[in-house]
Design a protein around this nucleic acid. Structure first.
Lengths: 143, 143, 143, 143
DNA sequence: GTGGTCTAGACCACG
DNA sequence: GTGGTCTAGACCACG
């Protein structure tokens, strides 16, 4: 099975560590459908070459994603996009999202952006997400 | 003028640096109205004692907040909550919020939370914000 | 002899100390003719009241200006705008101005402003200065 | 990639803080071409040893320069001279330079140096800058 | 009393 | 090896 080739763009000058940038972008790809469940990712070595980063950096990114339940590594075969695992309770999921939403609202306040504008921005972003069906639109993840 | 006393809680085990935790919590307080424009914050020394952190760490938090335009420091008098400054263009503000919202949506996908649920969570968080009128409810931030 | 009333505007949030802001603005006034040689300045006490600053702060500003040869204090009579004193050699004056001009040019480089634009900006600022004849246009200061 | 070695001279007796002296001198070097875009600066540690200052002081200088957009720091790799960033509007750039030029003119008045002399001094300093092509002579900064 | 600077020295994450 | 964080403790300028 051929590995999907990833097209990530890293900013070495960012305060965000390289491995975390890789993590974030792969998470996005999985969420938006750029990567589907079962897809095989490049090997650590290939990813490192492609992104011109250290092999350790690429390995760390995969490790983190595995810990998050986004990837699973089958020894000798490579890393694959994992099935959505539902280890979090509904309450916990709401708690996590609420925390993120609070940060959005705090930032909106500091930028002087009204809540109704936040709502319409959210609607717009949702639209651009759902045009690219990803993990989110799999059956069983609706509620 | 008496300083407001802050009730912050730090987690020394967190990966987030202590000074950044202070920054985040003060940002939230200002956004939600726990601190109002013109309020005087505790002195660097007092905050350091209260949080049992080093004076330099407390000072760094205030310096970052000043750089963000959240606080202003009057030499010899202390630090105060600043007027909202509007240095960002409208386009830039939308860009920043959209980036944050995208992270929310990615996380929602991974948690298996539907977009309509995200919307209702947002509505609920907004409500809890606006019950505590802060910087956000100042005139001129309506639209 | 009645004291000139000064209309200075201070920014308590600035990194520049208050006394230095007072110094800078009085220097400008003298240079541009807002204050003429022999003019009597407000007493330290009056200045402090007018600007709502500490008396020590006002006193320090006057001290610095005296050290610069801009003001002279006649005991019991108050502070006055001094005659231009020519204690610097021509070489020294050029050296001082060149140092300032270098800082302008460094800043122009970082801002991406061309040297020809700097020249035309200088011409424009000169024009706005000479419309308000100050100490500079006194006889004997031409060369 | 080898770091450029810097030849800075600090005055511990100056009222200007050590870190600010470092900032100023590196700004000048970048503007005049003593440092070119992409050049790697000495590590914080090496700079501290060379200047006989504390590591933290050296680090603060680099942090300020990064905030100014003069340097960019790649974690684990060091600090590099950044591309010119154009975050300021044209109006803002003119405003900043005009403020600096006004200070030059005020000083010229107090030193009894005529405006035509200021102009010729400026021309001379420009010449000495452009003989050392730096950031300023990049394409796109012509007008 | 207030914040700012500086040092010496330790530990950590990243690559 | 690189920068970032944090501490303890000192000194200084400003007001």
């Amino acid at each position: 099975m051929k590995a999907i080739s990833l097209n990530l763009s890293l900013d070495p000058a960012s305060a965000v560590p390289l491995y975390a940038q890789v993590v974030e972008q792969i998470r996005s790809l999985v969420a938006t459908g750029g990567l589907a469940v079962g897809d095989r990712l490049p090997s650590v070595r290939d990813l490192a070459v492609a992104l011109r980063i250290n092999r350790n950096t690429a390995a760390k990114a995969y490790q983190v994603l595995e810990g998050d339940g986004i990837l699973e590594t089958r020894s000798g075969q490579g890393s694959f996009v994992a099935q959505l695992d539902c280890r979090w309770s509904h309450a916990e999921r709401r708690r996590r999202l609420s925390a993120l939403l609070d940060r959005v609202l705090v930032e909106a306040c500091h930028l002087g952006v009204s809540f109704s504008q936040v709502e319409s921005l959210l609607a717009r972003r949702m639209e651009s997400f759902t045009r690219r069906p990803g993990r989110f639109s799999l059956p069983g993840n609706k509620g």
